[in-house]
Each structure stands twice: as structure tokens, then as C-alpha cells.
Nucleic acid binder design. Structure first.
Lengths: 136, 136
DNA sequence: TAAGCTATGCAATAAAATTGCAAACTTATT
DNA sequence: AATAAGTTTGCAATTTTATTGCATAGCTTA
């Protein structure tokens, strides 16, 4: 039993060629990919199959998605501290129930010390949960 | 000169009815909206016009977008600390130049104390900038 | 092996973002 | 004031990404 097979069965995902291939690739590459990139890496596989494989992996906790998407882009007025570069901005909150997005204006996104060589231009933080209105 | 007009001219945005209306609305409502929501709030206005007005506002620093979009959703392998709920996960970095996304596995997204009544289920953090490979 | 659930491929749709172009409108210039 | 030049708007259309339906093929298990 390979490591790939071990992971899949541990996570209760049935072992299939597509899943083995995809997981192997992700393990090898060790970085995030978009659906289109993966589609190009597996020209023989169907886009839908890759898509659903990713969904399955995500559900079973083998992979995570970046952005756990918000749906459409939202726009909000800038505040004073909202510089052009949008560094040190406030976090945003989205309620899973009512889908409303709120600017958490009284919090500041903490500075992050990135590994050497990285230049930070902008940080965004999205907090998901249930807003006070939606807690019965 | 109204406050609306003042903001617009301060930000070097030409004053037009659409822009006045939209800015007034955003000032009044004080929360983020999606393009579709705004389209419904201004049935007489064209979607494209609203879209471009938002783009203009964003460019000129009157509003900001939530998510400053990543493009497509990316998928990455989970690490041990990657719980099902995805709380306390790591930040992600996207290079503006090469567009590559990286998991910053050695950093942890700091806990955030939200206003009373908010239930936090998931936090995501995206850092944009230039990666070490792209700094000549 | 037959029945039943699961995965895949193909086609199609849905939702969101974005562009091209021409008409309407503003502004600057003569 | 009239015209030229530039900007904004509306409409139509396209692109990109996400998602679903359905039929077929493949496992699994009684």
C-alpha cells in the first residue's frame, strides 16, 4: 500500500486512478493550484472530474481551498486608515447565515513577518461565522 | 458644495449623477455591497456603469474591494494543523508578479477578538506582494 | 452474479467579471 | 458661443470560473 493509498483510505475516500494521480501530484508539488492549472497538467482528465475530485478532497479534509470563496466581490467605503496600499486594513466578517459582509473597523490586521525576500503589499483577512443578528 | 461633491473632487473623480448617487448610497448604508445588490438598488442604472464607477472609486481610493480577488480558487494539501473547521490556519501569499500562491505554513493566523455576539468559524488571510523569486 | 451505490465524461448552464464600441455629455480652447 | 478633445455612459457581447444533469462505466456487497 503506497502512501497515496494510505492517505485516501484514512480519509475514507475511495481509491481511484484519478484520485491517486491528483493526490500524488499535489504531494509532489507542495503548492496550491487552480482548477485550470490542474486541467492543463492532466490533459487526459476531464475538467469536471478534477473539479469533483477537488471537492471530494476538500470535504474529506485532504486539501483546503484558498479562498473559501465569498461569492461576488464586495465594495465598501474606505475609512481614514484605509491607505492606498491597503496595508494594515481591517478584517471583514461574513455571516454564513445571512451572507452579509461587515467591515470590522475597530480591529486592525496584525503585521506579519514573512520569510526573508517577500515584499508585502497588501493583506486581507476574512472571518466567517455567524453574526450577532443571526444567533437566534 | 455637498459632502459628496467634496469627496469626489478631493479624490479627483469627476462629479456625475451616477457617482453622486452611488457614493451617497454607500455613505448612507455604511456596509459593503456586491455589484448585483447595487444593480438592484439602482434599477435605472446600467450594470456596466455601476461596475465601472466602482472600479473608478476603487482606483481613486474612495472604496476598497473585499476580496481583492485572487482569480480562481486555489487548492492546496492540508497540513496536520489544518483542522476540519480551518480555524487558526496559515496565511497564504500571492505574488503580484508571477501570480503564484504559496502556503505560509510557518505562520499562524492570529486569533481575533470579535465584538460580542459574533461566532467565528473560519479565518482566512491573504497576503499579496512580491515573492523572493520575483525580486530581480 | 445481480442490485445498488459511486465515479466519470460529456454537454450544458449559471454566475460573475470584463471588454468594445458608439452615443451622450463635459471641458478646454479658439 | 462653437468646435475639438476627452470622459462617461448604455448596450451588446464575450470571457472566465463555477456548477449541475444525466447517462455510462466501475466497484462493492449481499
Amino acid at each position: 500500500m503506497t502512501i497515496i493509498e494510505k492517505i485516501l483510505s484514512q480519509k475514507a475516500v475511495r481509491i481511484t486512478p484519478m484520485r491517486q494521480l491528483l493526490l500524488e501530484y499535489l504531494l509532489q508539488e507542495q503548492k496550491p493550484f487552480g482548477l485550470t492549472e490542474l486541467e492543463n497538467s492532466f490533459p487526459k482528465a476531464d475538467r469536471t472530474t478534477i473539479y469533483r475530485t477537488l471537492k471530494t478532497f476538500e470535504e474529506k479534509g485532504i486539501i483546503h481551498s484558498i479562498y473559501n470563496k465569498l461569492g461576488e466581490v464586495k465594495y465598501a467605503l474606505c475609512k481614514e486608515h484605509c491607505t492606498t496600499e491597503h496595508i494594515d486594513q481591517h478584517p471583514h466578517f461574513q455571516c454564513e447565515q445571512c451572507k452579509q459582509v461587515t467591515c470590522i473597523d475597530n480591529l486592525v490586521i496584525p503585521k506579519m513577518e514573512l520569510p526573508k525576500g517577500y515584499l508585502v503589499q497588501e493583506i486581507t483577512m476574512l472571518i466567517k461565522g455567524i453574526c450577532s443578528d443571526c444567533q437566534q
